[in-house]
Nucleic acid binder design. Structure first.
Lengths: 226, 226
DNA sequence: TGCGCCATTATGTCTAGACATAATATGAGG
DNA sequence: CCTCATATTATGTCTAGACATAATGGCGCA
C-alpha cells in the first residue's frame, strides 16, 4: 500500500468513525511524516486530497483541522435512459413525436434552435417525455442527424465534448396531454428534470424530461473523500 | 499564478471549449514540463487533479487522454431547510408533531429508535413534512434532546460527525392527511426526499421529507474539475 | 505465420531540501 | 491596557532526481 494512500485512508477512517471530531486538530505534517516514516511532501499530498474532498480544512500557520460536515452535498448521477432501462432488462425504444426548426428558441436556449419532442419507452410503455431545444448556432450539424433513429441525448453525447450543466428537479402534475402520452392518471405526480447544458459559456441544449413518478427515482450518494 | 494551477486550468479550458476532444492524446508530462519550464512532478500534480475530476484519463505507458464525458453526474446540495428559508428572507419555524420511542424502528433504520414527526414552516405556512427515525443504539444522547425547540436535522448535524448518506428523490402524490398538513390540494404533486445516514457502516438516522412541489426545486450543478 | 517474451516508455510515487505565504503569537512602544 | 510591528510556525508549492509499475510494440523463436 502507498504511504500517501495509507495516511489518507487512516485519517479518513478516524474522521468518519467519529474518533476525530469536527474542529479537532490533525497532527502537523512533520509529526505525521515522523510517525509514518516518510517525507513531508507525502503527508502533504495525503492531506491535500483530504482537503479537496472536504474532510479536513487546512490553514497556514494554524494547522490542519477536521472540517465540519456540510449540510449535505451528494453526487447524483443522472443516467442515460437507454442504459438505465437496459440495466433493468427491459427493451428500450425512442419514439420521435416531432422535430422542427425554430428561429426563436426559448428562454433558456435562445436563438435558432431545433425543437424535438419524443417519448422514451421501456418494455413497450411510456417511461418519460422529452422536449428538447438544440442551439443551431452551437451545433449546426444537428440538422443532419436522424432523431427518429437515435434519441437526441445519445446523439449529443457523442458529438458534443465536455460541457457544463445545471439540473433542476421538481415534482409536477402533468397536463392532460402529458398524462395521456405517459399513460398515467392526470393526477399522478411526475418528476420533472430540466437540464441546461453549456459549452464554453454558451448554451448548447436545454431539455425537459418528465418521468412517471411511479417508475423513476433519482439516487444520490454522499461519500466525501476517496 | 501557480505553474501547477496554470497547467491544470489551461488544459481544462482546452477540453471544455472543445479544442481538445474526447480520446485526444494530451502531451506527455515531459513535453508539458518543457513547454511550461517546470519540473515533471509539477505537471504530474496538475494532471493528477484533472484525472481526479474526471476530465482526463491516465494510462501507464499509453499516456494521458481526454476522457469521454460521463452521462451526467452532478453535485447536488441538499440545503439545511432553516438556512434555505432564511436566505429567502422568510421566517423559519419547526413544529414538532410527535416524538416517541419505538423498539422496532423501520426497514431502513432497524432496532430501537426515536420516531419524530414535524413540519417545517416558512413565512407561517407549511413547507415540508418530516418523519425521522434516529437509531438509539448509535445516538443514545438523542433521548435528552429537545426536539420541540430544535429540528432533529439541525441537532444531529451538531452531534454526529462525518457520515455517509444516500438520498432517494421521487415525485409522489400526498395522502389526504399529508395534503392537509401541507395545506395543498390532495392531487398536488410533492417531492419526496429519503435520506439514510450511516456512520462507520451503521445506520444513524433515516428521514423522509415531503416538500410542496410548487415551492421547492432541487438544483444540481455539473462542473467537472476545479 | 503465430505466439510469447522483453525492452521501451509514460505514468505513479517518493525523497530531501528549498523558498513562499499567511496567520498567529510575541514583544515594544505609546 | 491597547496597538502595531516583527518573529515564528505550519502549510503551500516547487525542484531534481530516483525507482516502481504497467502496458505496448516489436523482436525472436518455434
Amino acid at each position: 500500500m502507498n504511504p500517501a494512500r495509507r495516511i489518507r485512508d487512516e485519517i479518513a477512517a478516524a474522521i468518519r468513525s467519529g474518533e476525530w471530531r469536527p474542529g479537532d486538530r490533525v497532527p502537523t505534517e512533520q509529526e505525521l511524516a515522523a510517525r509514518y516514516g516518510c517525507a513531508r511532501a507525502t503527508v502533504s499530498k495525503a492531506l491535500g486530497e483530504l482537503a479537496a474532498s472536504g474532510l479536513v480544512e487546512r490553514r497556514r500557520k494554524a494547522g490542519t483541522f477536521v472540517a465540519h460536515p456540510p449540510v449535505h452535498s451528494a453526487v447524483m448521477t443522472v443516467p442515460d435512459l437507454a442504459e438505465l432501462i437496459a440495466a433493468r432488462g427491459e427493451a428500450y425504444r425512442w419514439d420521435l413525436l416531432s422535430a422542427d426548426t425554430d428561429d426563436v428558441g426559448e428562454a433558456s436556449c435562445p436563438g435558432p434552435a431545433l425543437r424535438i419532442e419524443g417519448v422514451h419507452m421501456a418494455a413497450g410503455e411510456a417511461f418519460a417525455l422529452e422536449r428538447r431545444f438544440i442551439a443551431l448556432g452551437e451545433v449546426p450539424e444537428a440538422l443532419g442527424a436522424d432523431f427518429a433513429a437515435e434519441a437526441p441525448g445519445t446523439w449529443l453525447l457523442g458529438h458534443i465534448p465536455w460541457t457544463q450543466a445545471r439540473h433542476v428537479i421538481r415534482a409536477v402534475t402533468p397536463t392532460r396531454k402529458e398524462a395521456g402520452l405517459l399513460g398515467v392518471n392526470a393526477s399522478a405526480a411526475c418528476l420533472e428534470l430540466d437540464r441546461t447544458t453549456w459549452r464554453a459559456g454558451r448554451v448548447v441544449t436545454h431539455v425537459r424530461q418528465l418521468f412517471r413518478g411511479d417508475r423513476f427515482d433519482l439516487v444520490a450518494d454522499f461519500n466525501a473523500g476517496p
